[in-house]
Design a protein around this nucleic acid. Structure first.
Lengths: 161, 161
DNA sequence: CTTATTGCAAACGTTTTGCACGTTT
DNA sequence: AAACGTGCAAAACGTTTGCAATAAG
């Protein structure tokens, strides 16, 4: 039976746990633990939301001016994190991808076409259905992405006047 | 109760009907009916599939060498058609959007992450669920997009060896 | 001391734009 | 004739890459 529920601020594992998981990952791939990588992870942990690399870059520049992290590093680290499954991305038309920490439970997105707000939800029955469909078509399912577009309550109100 | 079915080559309305619909749209917006616009519509009608602007550009160049249609026009026309709801787009990470004629019944996509193949499917119960979710969150739903990613049967085979 | 990572700037591929010219109405 | 559309080339955008200098193991 499918219940669908809304996820507001999704509870996370502790930062320590997350960090040591990251370190472990790096170690087992002969990669190095750098200040930049830590700050990127930390920033994603600390700010709930879906960020473009550029936004993340600005945020980090603002909060860690002394670090002087380049945007190339943001891109490289996001790819790394995504490749390791620690971060997930969601892509809108031409304007690039947005990233969020992937340690939450899997969920889908509903996006306001007026203000860009993103809410998250999860629906068991949709998840199940998707797996059935993939199987029926002979696909080995790896991932999926469901986005609903519409106008959020606030924007509906503000367009009344 | 939701049946989910696969759509192979989806039946279309006649080209005449489509064309006159397009002309009407243009007229009512004080836009002009040009050879380029017709050829773009016609090419989308005639070839089933999901095209990047570049692919469409090449295809048109090949089939209508005398027209000398520029890629800027392809972009402009695809935006126009999408804005009017005659064409829909589907976007993958960084590699841009793919467009298809939007006169088919609504459907979703399953995409092979190895070869890029796109299949279409439709599932009633998922559609319904989405509407319920939007309503519950107070959104006025406008659109949605569901993509399943996985490895298609052919690619599963070829990676066996 | 070795190897990976960084910032920078240049390169890249895709999409958009300004403009003079051409076409549709 | 007026207004819109076109091709072209340049610009803009997001993203990736080569490289010499730097930091981690």
């Amino acid at each position: 039976m499918g219940h669908s529920k809304t996820l507001e601020t999704t509870p996370l594992i502790s930062y320590e746990t997350l960090l040591s998981h990251f370190k472990q990952l790096l170690r087992s791939n002969n990669l190095k633990f750098t200040k930049q990588r830590e700050v990127i992870l930390y920033t994603l942990y600390n700010h709930n939301g879906h960020f473009t690399p550029e936004e993340l870059y600005q945020l980090i520049k603002q909060e860690n001016p002394e670090l002087n992290a380049g945007i190339a590093t943001i891109y490289r680290t996001l790819s790394l994190l995504e490749g390791e499954g620690m971060v997930t991305s969601i892509s809108f038309g031409t304007q690039g991808k947005r990233y969020e920490l992937g340690i939450k439970a899997h969920h889908d997105h509903i996006i306001c076409t007026k203000c860009g707000k993103i809410l998250e939800f999860f629906d068991e029955s949709i998840e199940k259905k998707q797996e059935q469909i993939a199987k029926k078509l002979g696909f080995k399912m790896e991932d999926h992405s469901l986005k609903i577009f519409g106008v959020c309550p606030e924007c509906q109100k503000s367009s009344d006047k």
